[in-house]
């Protein structure tokens, strides 16, 4: 691989023929791709040892044409189901799922919950931009209450999912939440999540200027990032705050870390026992 000195260092991990990316001007998906390849570069992981699994949606385009490694672009909402299969057959490989909120929570919510319950060694980066961006900005399970969207033009009257809390309650080993403004913390969290045994989950709050921003009168990526910057509260600070004070704020930080036993490890132990029993 020849590195051109005039290029950004991380472009060596991308397929040059698809650049520039297909994302809109000011979209957060590119920032997440940037953080993802930086995390792999810092950990010195060979891209051939990583399988990136994606579903359907804008955020599923993060690794699928752009990242120069094995990618699996699957059906809508089933990214974790495919990733489970890859991890069971190839337990030594790093399996990373990158998909959006509509894909992983809306369509495939059950897969997410049960993967966390099983504690299978898959890393999930959930890109939360609050709407179904690719199809025009319909309301998703994470759309905040009182926000107008394409499918709820007066306002959204449903309560949103606090998905990081749901996944940690289901039993994931590592759960964190960051926004696309906190890039350095995001890279550190991604590195930790990739290395962590068991189910690790990072919710990344991202901006969608085209299909979310225009309904909330923040039409550019800069305005949305400024909003994230002003409304983020670290989890340590948020502990002392009441629920009313935290309304409309983003609690960022590492939410949970535990060490439950991993699924494929237990599966191999069981396999060994059965083979020994049948042979001896």
């Amino acid at each position: 691989m020849v590195i051109d000195k005039q290029e950004q260092r991380m472009i060596k991990y991308l397929r040059r023929e698809v650049l520039p990316t297909t994302f809109c001007q000011g979209c957060g998906c590119g920032t997440i791709l940037n953080a993802y390849v930086k995390a792999l570069d810092d950990l010195e992981i060979d891209p051939r040892e990583v399988v990136s699994v994606t579903g359907i949606g804008c955020s599923s385009w993060i690794p699928s044409p752009n990242f120069h490694g094995d990618t699996l672009h699957t059906t809508h909402g089933r990214a974790i189901a495919f990733a489970t299969g890859v991890k069971v057959m190839k337990p030594d490989m790093k399996v990373v799922v990158i998909a959006g909120d509509g894909d992983l929570i809306g369509i495939g919510g059950n897969h997410l919950m049960h993967a966390a319950r099983r504690n299978i060694g898959v890393t999930v980066f959930l890109v939360n931009n609050f709407v179904y961006g690719m199809t025009g900005g319909q309301s998703s399970p994470t759309t905040p209450m009182g926000i107008p969207t394409a499918s709820s033009p007066y306002k959204n009257i449903e309560s949103p999912f606090n998905i990081a809390e749901v996944v940690s309650a289901c039993g994931a080993n590592y759960v964190a939440r960051w926004t696309t403004y906190h890039v350095f913390s995001l890279v550190d969290s991604m590195k930790h999540a990739i290395q962590k045994k068991g189910f690790s989950f990072v919710e990344i709050i991202s901006q969608c200027p085209m299909n979310y921003g225009r309904y909330v009168k923040r039409r550019t990526g800069v305005e949305l990032l400024q909003y994230f910057k002003e409304n983020s509260i670290n989890v340590e600070k948020a502990k002392d705050m009441s629920e009313d004070e935290l309304n409309g704020k983003f609690v960022v930080g590492e939410l949970i870390e535990r060490n439950r036993r991993e699924f494929t490890e237990q599966l191999r132990v069981l396999n060994k026992k059965i083979i020994q029993k049948n042979l001896g």
């Binding site: 290029e7 950004q8 260092r9 991380m10 472009i11 991308l14 650049l19 520039p20 990316t21 994302f23 000011g26 979209c27 957060g28 998906c29 590119g30 920032t31 791709l33 940037n34 953080a35 930086k38 696309t180 403004y181 890039v183 350095f184 890279v187 990526g221």
Partner: peptide
Amino acid sequence: EQICPEFAIH
């Protein structure tokens, strides 16, 4: 360099 969505600045 890290926040650029298009890998355009370094």
